[in-house]
Amino acid sequence: MRKTALITGASSGIGLELAKVHAAKGDNLVLVARNQVKLEELKVELESKHNINVLVIAKDLSLPNAAQEVFDETIHKAIPVDYLINNAGFGDFGMFSETNWEKEHKMIELNITALTQFTKLYLKEMVKRNSGRIMNVASTAAFQPGPTMAVYYATKAFVLHFSEAIANEVKGKGITVTALCPGATESGFQSVAEMEESKLVKGKKLPPSAEVAQYGYKAMMKGKTVAIHGVMNRILANSVRFMPRNMVTKITRSVQDKAN
């Protein structure tokens, strides 16, 4: 029997590549994003190429009750979600005193609220079936404070700690929870965050989204709780535990400021 993966933020970047990975494995898909046109194009491509069923749900997940509406639609259509992939999210670059609150509020609603509600809703169904896998896309940003991206880093710290806690709660119940922590990745993230001039990404060769998606899929299927993509990212993420907090924050600021 085919399994079904629900993927948020599926119209671009890591989410789109995760959709391709699951489709290639023969999984049916529920694809959620704001861009209806891109989702429909992806649906046609994946259904014809892999002979699977794809349900498209165009939804702005930063809006109240959006996650509940998606859940209700899958229940109404009797679609059991075996893999929940909370990938949708975005960032913002700039000093907190100067950045736009409306954008940050949407970021919090998407990166935290929608992800948490999706996990709550679908986890209950997984517990009933004693099976299921959840992947929450965090970031290497989750391991330290992030001056010039203060709210984004904080949201990803929430995702990491939340995922680790839930993974512990469901241990032995046939369910796994994975926090995927990529570093800077070649995707549309940088343009949305308006951080193309940051030293973190300007002039850098970033790993492609497809590579991160493959890594994340394998980590989820192995039931890994925290999956940090890239050897150097793993070293850096773990090294912050042994450094003074103020030094970690200063270093983060220095590598993320605008390039000269």
Rank of each mutant, 00 (worst) to 15 (best):
E104P: 12
M149C: 07
G174A: 08
V240M: 10
L180A: 12
K205D: 15
H229T: 06
A58Y: 03
T140P: 02
N87L: 04
D72C: 04
I251W: 09
V70L: 07
L39Q: 06
G13H: 04
F143H: 12
L46D: 01
A157H: 15
E41Y: 00
G26L: 13
A210W: 10
E211K: 12
I14C: 09
K59L: 08
N35G: 00
M149D: 05
K3Q: 15
T252N: 14
A58T: 00
L115A: 11
W101M: 12
L123Y: 03
M220K: 02
A154M: 14
T249A: 12
P147C: 09
Y83S: 07
L55K: 09
T140K: 07
L63I: 04
A58K: 03
T116M: 14
A67V: 05
R245M: 13
L121I: 08
T225N: 10
A154Y: 11
S187G: 04
E196H: 03
K171R: 14
V231W: 12
P147F: 12
M107T: 03
I108V: 15
L123G: 10
G132P: 08
T74C: 12
P145W: 02
K204D: 08
A142M: 04
S62I: 13
L110M: 05
A67E: 05
S198Y: 05
H50G: 05
N233A: 10
V54K: 07
L180C: 10
Q214R: 14
S254I: 05
G9S: 02
G13R: 02
G188Q: 03
K204V: 11
M95H: 15
G203D: 03
I112F: 09
G132R: 02
A150G: 08
P182F: 06
K59G: 03
K38E: 08
C181Y: 02
H22N: 04
P244R: 15
K43I: 05
M1W: 09
R241Q: 13
P80N: 12
Q117C: 09
L6F: 01
S191M: 11
P244V: 14
V54M: 09
N246C: 12
K77G: 05
M195Y: 07
N100P: 08
L16W: 02
N238L: 08
R34C: 05
A141T: 02
M95I: 15
